[in-house]
């Protein structure tokens, strides 16, 4: 028996290492399938227009065709693309700034103070429940109100709306982080005569910085990607990347090589930023319900 047990254990281990290899392979194939559409855009963007539909197989650059940066060069030079990129960046940054300014104190209040009239958790859920509102329900009123104030096609209008729909993310992500911080540090400061604002600004905020930064990145990505409000509230001067991509196609038919470049330019910032915030994505996307 003493000689048989290690034998068996070895056999089990061997079998499991073979199955590990098989499942690893499956996982790699799955990841490749999910990556394929992005890969296809990259491949398309590097082809000459005539090669779009003639390249055989998987369209691997250098193997199936000679890549060229011509499409990238001509798209980056387009002034509208440049303007849209600037608009998207500015609007998203300003919206994130507003959301942080409003959301951080609110998150702190929900984590540290006790509210009596409406319990804390109901306030939290109220904040995030508006994530669930269908945008069409508020789009018409926004359009009419902003046209009344002559703010259509201005960065301000879209910034205000974006700040509103990204606000729940900072509230739910950072509330939990504040809640998990040891309260003793802040209480010691209060005993020493510091105000609640000092405790919030000097102690809680610096300690919660990683979560705050992650929530800012996630909010930036959401503000950047938003289309419905953007297409309603902006036309030309304040048009964002999504509006720019959608507009360019209507006028000239679909030019695959340019579409690929534009789509990639639009996608790269939010996707990269989200990768940086990986650790907080689950918490953010489940509105704080799963800690991840």
């Amino acid at each position: 028996m003493s000689s048989e047990t290690p034998e068996r254990a070895k056999a089990v281990r061997q079998r499991s290492s073979i199955s590990d290899a098989v499942w690893s392979l499956v996982a790699i194939v799955v990841a490749l399938i999910f990556f394929f559409p992005l890969y296809w855009a990259i491949s398309n963007s590097l082809r000459r227009p005539a090669e779009t539909f003639t390249v055989a197989g998987l369209g691997i650059p250098f193997v199936d065709f000679t890549p060229t940066l011509e499409n990238w060069r001509s798209q980056v030079m387009v002034p509208e693309a440049y303007a849209a990129f600037t608009n998207s960046t500015l609007i998203s940054l300003m919206a994130v700034a507003i959301a942080l300014a409003l959301g951080l104190p609110a998150a702190y209040a929900l984590a540290r103070f006790k509210f009596f009239l409406i319990p804390n958790k109901d306030l939290t859920v109220w904040f995030l429940s508006q994530r669930i509102l269908p945008p069409v329900a508020t789009a018409v009123p926004f359009f009419i109100v902003f046209s009344f104030f002559d703010l259509l096609d201005s960065r301000i209008a879209l910034t205000l709306v974006s700040a509103t729909f990204i606000l729940p993310f900072v509230v739910v992500i950072v509330r939990q982080t504040f809640y998990d911080l040891p309260i003793e540090l802040e209480e010691a400061a209060l005993v020493d005569g510091a105000s609640h604002f000092t405790a919030f600004w000097r102690i809680a905020i610096p300690l919660a910085m990683p979560a705050i930064a992650a929530s800012a990145l996630i909010m930036f990505a959401f503000a950047w990607n938003e289309y419905l409000f953007a297409v309603i509230l902006t036309v030309k001067d304040a048009a964002t990347m999504p509006v720019h991509i959608a507009g360019g196609v209507d006028t000239r038919g679909v030019q695959f090589w340019f579409v690929a470049v534009r789509s990639l330019i639009a996608m790269i910032p939010p996707v990269l930023l989200a990768l940086l915030a990986q650790r907080y994505i689950v918490r953010g996307l489940t509105l704080g319900a799963v800690k991840g």
Binding site: N225, Y227, V249, S263, A274
Partner: peptide, 25 residues
């Protein structure tokens, strides 16, 4: 592999629509 799987979630939906237009061609 997990990072690769995260990419689609934050890809701009409008851009995704056009990407798939080229894929479904």
């Amino acid at each position: 592999l997990r990072s690769i799987m995260i990419l689609p979630i934050f890809a701009t939906p409008i851009a995704v629509g056009y990407l798939f237009f080229t894929i479904f061609y």
